[in-house]
Design a protein around this nucleic acid. Sequence first.
DNA 1: AAAATTTTCGCAAACGTTTGATATTTTTGC
DNA 2: GCAAAAATATCAAACGTTTGCGAAAATTTT
Lengths: 330, 330
Amino acid sequence: MNNTTLKLLAQQLQLSISTVSRALKNHPDISAKTKAKVQALAQNLDYEPNASAIQLRTQTSKILGVIVPAIANLFYENFLAAIEEESRNNGYALMILQSNHNAENELNNLKIFRQNRVSGIFACLSANSENLDVYHKMIEQDMPIVFFDIVPKSNAFTKVRMADERCGVLAAKNIIKRNAKKVLAIFGDPALSISQIRKTSFQNLMMDLSPKTNVKYINATSSIEAEEIFKKNYNKTAKLDTVFCMTDEILIGVMRAIQELQIKVPTEMGVISISNGFIPNLYFPVISYVETSGFQLGKLAFTQMMANLQTGKPVDELTVEAKLIEGGSM
Amino acid sequence: MNNTTLKLLAQQLQLSISTVSRALKNHPDISAKTKAKVQALAQNLDYEPNASAIQLRTQTSKILGVIVPAIANLFYENFLAAIEEESRNNGYALMILQSNHNAENELNNLKIFRQNRVSGIFACLSANSENLDVYHKMIEQDMPIVFFDIVPKSNAFTKVRMADERCGVLAAKNIIKRNAKKVLAIFGDPALSISQIRKTSFQNLMMDLSPKTNVKYINATSSIEAEEIFKKNYNKTAKLDTVFCMTDEILIGVMRAIQELQIKVPTEMGVISISNGFIPNLYFPVISYVETSGFQLGKLAFTQMMANLQTGKPVDELTVEAKLIEGGSM
DNA sequence: AAAATTTTCGCAAACGTTTGATATTTTTGC
DNA sequence: GCAAAAATATCAAACGTTTGCGAAAATTTT
């Protein structure tokens, strides 16, 4: 479809292809009259430049690639929404590929990106992607790559992530403020650095500022698991009075239990989580949470990408600040 | 980055470009020995064919476009996940663009698709996109377009959608089965055909099978609005015993009210909704819902696209069946 | 061993665009 | 009016592929 080309326009106007090309982009060499004629016809014939031809000629594409574990995810979908918006506003198109947390898929996706000569890549590592050789190789060949969320440890890479230390600290502070006596703190997959960071910062602050608070630390990797853990640790005699949920997944499980056991929030139980806010707002009272916005992270990632694209490669690690949003659950 | 080309391979091997090209794709004209040599070097040098050059030469791209109102949406994210997966498995890359329910954005996105010469488009209409001329024009020029979810009325288009009539029917049947006396039925934006269809089918069945049931029909376009509507219509004397929520949005608002008012589900109030299941599973008891799977719709849309791509254009309307998933809320 | 085949490979054009260099026309200065 | 300068438009090559056609080399047939 749409086969209007510069050549066609040139023929119809009895002009050369180069003149038409220049007329279309307001080149000073072309007179106002010709420009007008050319642009009018182009408009009429629905001319749209062929991106492939341009990329071939100029050796630069206006396409950015993103690898995300899954599109259908409360966090990533917001990240994607942000970079899509930014890309579009900056003349780039986005190519989004899912890895399903699978290293093999990840490699395949990278291959697709290379075939399409994307000019930059946003990458979120698969949980099991040990081998970063591909990335190293691509970076050596000047491919801008911005890692987000699940990022490599090496600081030879450009990365953006949430200020996870602050997340842990803010949550812990709020728990202390509530004067909690007995806390259940559920963290995510212990293999992920994000879990480790949040836990360490939480734990450190807790021990520093309120060493006598009784805190039990457990990890859960699914909402079901979180639900079971909560039920197991809750009973009238235990007098659990506060629960901390590191992720939305965990919060969902805990809240299912709380609803089932008909525990009153916040009087009988304080609840606090780390989230982008969507899930906490489903409940009454709204759950207090430390905000981690995929949307904001996306914005940050994009500015990093642009900087990277324009000025060589500013290798560093940027974080987006976290803040506490008070619901009525504490 | 990655500048290995056929030319480079040819030079290094003292072969012609055409031979290298053919060797790489196992053309019978090329001897086994040369093939081996060529493929080995290609591997070594990380050769990846330039998609733009191929598209330019063959006049067909392996890119599919999708226009979605928003990526961050419980329904669309699953649709996207499905077509991304299928596309990838079929050698296509996806270009995803958001319209934000804005007709102007929609047009811009279509332009981007044309510039990139995508070979097919999945489109979800913006709420306010009255003018379908662009689409008509593109279809005339043989661009395969599969509409999904919010689709044009005209049947000159290929479309896939949920079996919305069945949704309304199934929900109504379940309400009758519960022996409800007084029902509050909240539907979505009345301007959307999806709301109209679901409401009509619901209403018809209700009047046919249980004319004496007292049903109040209201529309809500946000969770906040739904919450207010529910609160306004609920009071001890009203004896409301069942509420129907046409969308997740509405369910969210209603459930916030139900939690706040501490209404017991299902004894004091039956709740049923239409959803993909994510939101209903956040509550205890789990809310009963008529399942509408964005994921399945995506799969269906993709097969339609493939058919369209291969065999001219099978203009028709396909629907994915709905089924009732029982939670504990009725 | 020459002719007829078959196997293996190279030539060259085309896809649509950009752009430095060059050619043609118009305007300007005197 | 005529050269010089400025304005306007064209030429041609290149980006990386694919592919019909023809050429050379190797193999088989008589």
